[in-house]
Nucleic acid binder design. Structure first.
Lengths: 179, 179
DNA sequence: AGTTGCATGTAAGAGGTTACATGATTTC
DNA sequence: GAAATCATGTAACCTCTTACATGCAACT
């Protein structure tokens, strides 16, 4: 059982999903391709952590809808109290910034502006996600608590948004340093 | 040439280093083990991007001190204007938060407090890093510019600190949500 | 007519971690 | 006496990405 496997089980606590949907939803928290996820789901099924029903479709390809078993839920609870791995961040941009003095200001500024744009687009996506959450939720988001099924997503969007905001502000501060 | 290789070249723009030192210094920006770095350095040397001198030592093991060649510097300048890969973050903690409702508040709080402590220690390390920078620098840090050899590190510590600060604040806000 | 989305899977290869191997000095 | 630091390297293994493979529907 690796971390991605627990991640897939985590997503399944919020309802049944196909491998394809799991692949889409796990991206912000643990990026992974379908080619990594499908074999893991097969292994999780063999070990009894998940089960699936085959759903034939006519217009689209047939699909397997996975759901969490009670064994899988037990595994999650055991995992929850185990020591948590440190976060791992790899950012090519940071390495470039380290030796940005090698190129002239024009080129340096371009590298920075590209990344600033990337962050701005991310922030827009977060705004959209919050909008959608607001629509899906019966209460105002600030009143959500541990018991609500949307609580987890609400927390995570907030966490991700905080970091991107910090990076964006740093990017803009850095731009002011450059001229 | 993969990203880690460019990262090693980037560090060498600030002076000669052993493989061991490179391994230590690259951790905050692109975590890597010595077992990954030594073979890459050998390949970079074969391709003429770096060179090394063998330095025998009596009290410690002999070492190879690597430095950047002009070919290596050219490679860095070409890399700088190429499209920059998106940052990749993998955080087991985020996955746990998503399904934190599975366990009781006591256990949930423990998971949170452990991570809060981790972030606090990180913040202390950043403070120490800034202290050391202040000592190493001839000017006040705010006046550093593109040309200063310490500029790159100063920027990066600021960037990393901003993100950890955002995460720490989120962690504390989340704690308030839990009770 | 070409791309995107849905939907699953395998195979090859690159990237990254853990373990094996050695050995002196310093710190707890 | 045990662990950490410096210092290099290889081998086995796991993780992750890219590419191959298929096929229909909807959109541009």
């Amino acid at each position: 059982m690796n971390t991605l496997s627990y991640g897939l089980l985590s997503l399944l606590t919020r309802g049944s999903r196909t491998g394809y949907e799991l692949m889409l939803h796990i991206q912000p928290f643990w990026p992974a391709k379908h080619s990594q996820i499908y074999p893991l789901l097969a292994r999780l099924e063999q070990n009894g952590y998940v089960q699936f029903v085959h759903v034939p479709q006519s217009d689209k390809p047939d699909k397997k809808v996975y759901s969490l078993t009670s064994l899988g839920e037990d595994a999650l609870r055991e995992w929850m109290v185990m020591p948590t791995d440190e976060p791992v961040l790899r950012d090519e941009f940071a390495l470039k910034v380290y030796c940005i003095g090698l190129v002239d200001k024009g080129q340096a500024l371009k590298v920075l502006l590209d990344r600033e744009n990337y962050y701005k687009k991310k922030m827009e996506k977060f705004a959209l996600s919050f909008e959608q959450l607001k629509n899906d939720s019966s209460k105002p988001l600030e009143e959500l608590s541990l018991e609500d099924p949307l609580f987890g997503i609400y927390l995570l969007i907030g966490k991700a948004r905080g970091k991107v905001k910090a990076d964006l502000e740093w990017c803009q501060w850095m731009k002011s340093k450059l001229r």
